[in-house]
Design a protein around this nucleic acid. Structure first.
Lengths: 230, 230
DNA sequence: CCTTTTATTATGTGTGTACATATAAATATG
DNA sequence: CATATTTATATGTACACACATAATAAAAGG
């Protein structure tokens, strides 16, 4: 006989849902009823159900009760990777090389992304990340100098822009998108691949307290896969 | 003055972390101390910190205390989409078309993925998803007939294989991976794009109670982006 | 000095209670 | 009959308390 904890209850209810004890969208017993059934306090059931709700398996509503989610869209959690760690995780030797580092007025698309005024300069930073000497990913980045002016004197021969920013402005929020693009001329030459090759791209914009810090496109070499369990 | 709830406390602590009040990897005050500071019960602080721990912002250890995560790898949560809903979310008219539906012995790569015996047949199902009549995504799927034999008689003129499976074996687990590939001949003709175009691909394998149910590759038409806030 | 044992301590979790809040359902009102 | 108001109810949340558990630090033993 297992101990009755919010974890075991959560697992148990999950299994009952998977077995089909309650149909999609159907109401499951209330907290009070489940508490009696499992022989525990309502608080404990509440925690278990909240957990399932966080994962999107059930939907809860005051007075409405708890029901099995009728639109079971499973969520995948991805770790947005730091390239160095990716490379080293595969046992490769990591190195990076700054291809361009200039302050200049960015194109409109970048300007609006970073929320810059017309004519304001930003730092353009292009880096190639190498695994065992071979190009692994190409990073095209723009940095908002108003927010992180210290980046001008950052030692980019030691750490990559990515890592420097993670250290300096950690826990920033933002958005990511994944897509596929055909390699352009610059990217192809940096990654030593053919123009037009299908590349996996992570597009990421980072902001801190309402201010946009940096926006970046990361082009992975051909064949790269981003993997996750769900 | 805001009410003191686990939510407001959580937000407050998050901001203090972002402001850099505690360095990366540094110990933050214990629950008891914070409870006194915020003037609430320890239970409430516990909930706030647990929440931050779930999001990967802090690491907690018994006796060791709570410390700011020193490896701030932000996680992105993605909803693994159902194509119909994606199309309809953009206001498009959804329709799908089954291009192939045959039972046959799958190639080795699929066989191992589904955990089938040598010579066992599986259902091959190729579908094209259309938005306003235009190809939106191409789905190449294999289904394990041992686990879901009922699929033979599923009404695929009404619902897509994806939806049928979601309805029939909901809340299954599995894995996903994202990548970019160049469109092959079949895919190109189904999506009405050029061969070699860079396509975004979701590769998904689903299992239920240790048995593999189905594996699928979903090729999106050019330009598709998968987006998420973090 | 090193190893083993024993506190000590911060988090983890369950309980019972009380009250807050949203909302569905029932009732009163025009 | 439609609309506004009230009531009942399930979840949401805070609290005080007790004990469990893991991991570190201190003490004891060799």
């Amino acid at each position: 006989m297992n101990k009755v904890t919010h974890q075991t209850i959560r697992q148990s209810i999950l299994e009952r849902i998977q077995k089909g004890e309650w149909a999609l969208g159907e109401l499951i017993p209330g907290e009070a009823a489940l508490a009696e059934e499992y022989g525990c306090a309502r608080t404990t059931i509440n925690r278990a159900l909240q957990g399932l709700a966080d994962e999107g398996l059930v939907v809860r509503k005051r007075k409405g009760g708890t029901r099995v989610c009728n639109m079971p869209v499973r969520q995948a959690r991805f770790d947005i990777p730091i390239v160095r760690e990716q490379v080293e995780a595969f046992g490769g030797h990591y190195r990076h090389q700054v291809l361009r580092k200039v302050e200049k007025v960015p194109p409109l698309s970048i300007r609006t992304r970073l929320g810059l005024e017309k004519g304001a300069k930003a730092l353009q930073l292009d880096t190639v990340h190498l695994a065992d000497g071979r190009p692994f990913a190409y990073e095209a980045r723009w940095v908002n100098l108003k927010v992180v002016p210290q980046i001008r004197s950052a030692p980019f021969d030691e750490v990559s822009a990515n890592e420097w920013l993670v250290q300096t402005v950690p826990f920033s929020s933002g958005d990511v998108s994944f897509s596929a693009v055909a390699a352009g001329k610059d990217v192809a030459s940096a990654l030593e691949c053919k123009e037009g090759d299908a590349l996996f791209v992570i597009d990421r914009t980072t902001s801190l307290a309402g201010e946009f810090v940096t926006t970046m496109k990361l082009f992975y070499r051909e064949g790269y896969q981003l993997y996750s369990r769900l």
